[in-house]
Measured scan of single mutants.
Amino acid sequence: QIGDLVNIDLDLEIVQSLQHGHGGWTDGMFETLTTTGTVCGIDEDHDIVVQYPSGNRWTFNPAVL
């Protein structure tokens, strides 16, 4: 839910696979593998929007978090 702290604890290849159809994966997202983020929103597809200390916001398949 919004305000929750979240981490990704999966291998890169699994995360990339799960992201298909959920915003995809870009090289800029590598920070998300090692950094705790804060849930800042849930979109119309029930994907999770997470903000990181860098100021970046990324959209994830809920199965990734």
Rank of each mutant, 00 (worst) to 15 (best):
I42V: 12
G41F: 12
R57I: 15
T36R: 07
N61T: 04
Q51T: 09
G23N: 02
L5F: 12
G55E: 15
L65R: 00
Q19W: 00
T32C: 15
A63S: 08
H20Y: 10
H46N: 15
G23Q: 00
L18K: 09
G21D: 11
V15G: 02
M29V: 05
L5I: 13
L33M: 12
P53G: 04
S17P: 04
T36E: 12
F60R: 08
I42T: 10
G24Q: 05
D27M: 07
I2R: 09
D27F: 00
L18G: 05
I8Q: 01
H20L: 11
D11N: 08
H20E: 15
L12H: 08
I48A: 05
E44F: 10
D4Q: 10
V49I: 13
V6F: 03
L10P: 04
G3M: 02
T38D: 08
I48D: 01
L18N: 01
T34Q: 07
G41Q: 13
G23S: 04
V39W: 00
G3N: 04
L5R: 14
E13Q: 09
L18P: 05
D45T: 11
R57Y: 06
L33Q: 10
E44A: 14
G55V: 04
G37A: 01
R57W: 05
T36G: 03
C40E: 09
Q16G: 06
L65V: 12
R57P: 04
I14Y: 10
T59W: 08
T35A: 08
I14K: 11
N7E: 10
G23W: 04
L5W: 10
T38C: 10
Q1W: 13
H46V: 03
D4N: 08
S54L: 01
Q16L: 09
R57V: 11
D45W: 05
P62A: 06
L18Y: 09
L12A: 10
D11G: 07
S17Y: 13
V15I: 13
L5P: 09
T59Q: 08
F60G: 03
T38Q: 09
D47V: 14
G21T: 01
G21Y: 09
Q16W: 10
L10G: 12
G37F: 01
L10N: 11
D27S: 09
G37T: 01
I2D: 04
G55S: 02
F30R: 15
A63G: 07
T36W: 07
P62V: 02
G23M: 05
G3P: 08
E13G: 12
G24P: 03
V39H: 07
G55A: 00
H22R: 04
I42H: 10
H22V: 00
T34G: 13
P62L: 00
G41M: 10
L10Q: 11
Q1D: 15
I8R: 02
T36C: 08
G23A: 03
G21E: 08
M29C: 00
E13T: 13
T59E: 03
G24S: 05
N56D: 06
H46W: 12
E44Q: 13
W25V: 05
V39E: 04
T34M: 11
T32D: 10
W58R: 03
T35S: 14
I2M: 14
Q51W: 07
A63Y: 06
W58H: 10
C40S: 07
G24A: 06
M29Q: 08
G37R: 00
G41T: 05
E31R: 04
Q1K: 15
L33K: 03
D45K: 14
H22L: 10
E44W: 07
G21I: 01
F60C: 03
D11I: 03
E13A: 13
W25S: 07
N61P: 00
Y52I: 00
T36V: 09
L18F: 11
F60A: 02
L10T: 09
G21L: 08
V49T: 09
H46K: 13
V50M: 07
V64N: 03
T34W: 08
D27H: 11
W25L: 02
H20N: 15
Y52D: 02
E31V: 00
E13R: 12
G3V: 00
T36L: 05
N56P: 01
L12Y: 09
C40A: 10
W25H: 06
E13D: 11
D4A: 13
D45F: 11
E31C: 02
Y52H: 04
G21F: 13
W25G: 06
E31L: 00
D11P: 15
F30C: 15
T35N: 04
L33C: 06
T32F: 06
D43G: 08
T38W: 11
T26E: 12
N61I: 00
E44M: 11
S54A: 01
L5C: 07
E13L: 07
T34P: 00
D43E: 08
L33Y: 12
E44I: 08
G37H: 06
G24M: 02
